[in-house]
Design a protein around this nucleic acid. Structure first.
Length: 291
DNA sequence: ACTTACACCTGCCAGC
DNA sequence: TGCTGGCAGGTGTAAG
């Protein structure tokens, strides 16, 4: 569900409220969200108890709470998370009613001595949490994830070089988190619409300037979405305070099947793609000839 | 190394 | 009313 802008909204909310707090207790209510942690549910909880949160970071759609180094460590651990399709990180006063899909409860103690609950809520449980040993700066678990387009160190030239060596459809390349991270189905369709590119165009048949332009559109649309709190179609995507973003009102392609293209008036079309959907303007975004 | 298909989950909605 | 199938913001894995 959440793509880079939505995860960034969550990261910023956590940063504002939990940095400096100490994790006093961890309650794993369903084992699935911690499935990638080899310690198991109780080991996961034990590895976090007593640790202090130093910072909240993000790469692509992953976020992590960087933990202060404990005695004997020169680098702190991290609580690494991914929201999957339906995950939420929510902050509550202690004692607030449990959500139906509450999976993990963290009881925090703020520097001012207040108790605060941080909750991982996830209906479909494609998301997950893991304790990354020494992962405060960059968890090894996400070493295969490329930098995202918002990262100042993202290398546009390298992206263009790699994309032009690939035969895959350009939309697949945008969704390939090892090439560029943070882009999902919504922002891929939006960036392709802005670039007037059909998602089935193969990477190795696109020019450098066209790919650079596409990258620019990815950055633009993500920046605009972030300014509006992200994209939210329902209560499944919310910030740490449970509030929705408004960018769904600004979408030009995604979810707009049958609506007139804002540029040319042609009805937006939907086609099946990788077990999901692609939305595009059949006039502005011409399909490749072959295939 | 790249490419593709599929599994992993739950809930909602349309159609019968 | 209830069943079935299709669909949903994603990623890891395995096979070709």
């Amino acid at each position: 569900m959440p793509e880079l802008p939505e995860v960034e909204v969550v990261r910023a909310g956590l940063e504002r409220h939990v940095v400096g707090s100490r994790i006093e207790a961890v309650e794993v209510l369903h084992p699935r969200p911690v499935r990638r942690d080899h310690r198991g549910s109780t080991g996961f909880a034990a590895a976090l108890a007593g640790q202090r949160i130093d910072a909240v970071r993000r790469r692509g759609k992953y976020f992590w709470l960087a933990l202060a180094p404990t005695s004997g460590q020169d680098r702190g651990d991290a609580l690494l998370g991914h929201l999957g399709m339906s995950g939420q990180m929510l902050l509550h006063e202690p004692g607030a009613l449990d959500e139906r899909h509450l999976r993990v409860r963290f009881t925090l103690r703020t520097p001012a001595g207040q108790a605060l609950e941080m909750r991982f809520v996830d209906q479909r449980m494609f998301g997950g949490l893991v304790v990354s040993a020494g992962g405060a700066d960059l968890p090894v678990e996400i070493a295969h994830i490329a930098r995202d387009p918002v990262d100042p160190q993202f290398d546009d030239d390298e992206f263009v070089r790699r994309a032009r060596r690939r035969t895959s459809a350009v939309k697949r390349l945008l969704l390939d988190q090892g090439l560029v991270s943070g882009v999902g189905n919504i922002y891929a369709d939006e960036a392709l619409w802005r670039a007037r590119l059909h998602g089935e165009r193969p990477g190795d048949r696109l020019s450098g300037p066209v790919l650079r332009g596409l990258l620019g559109h990815v950055r633009d649309v993500m920046g605009e979405a972030l300014a509006q709190g992200g994209t939210s179609f329902d209560a499944l995507y919310v910030n740490v305070n449970g509030e929705s973003g408004y960018f769904d009102r600004s979408l030009d392609a995604y979810g707009q099947e049958g609506r007139p293209c804002r540029r040319c008036g042609t009805p937006i079309r939907r086609v099946a793609f990788m077990n999901r959907s692609s939305f595009f303007c059949p006039r502005c975004q011409r399909p490749p000839r072959s295939r």
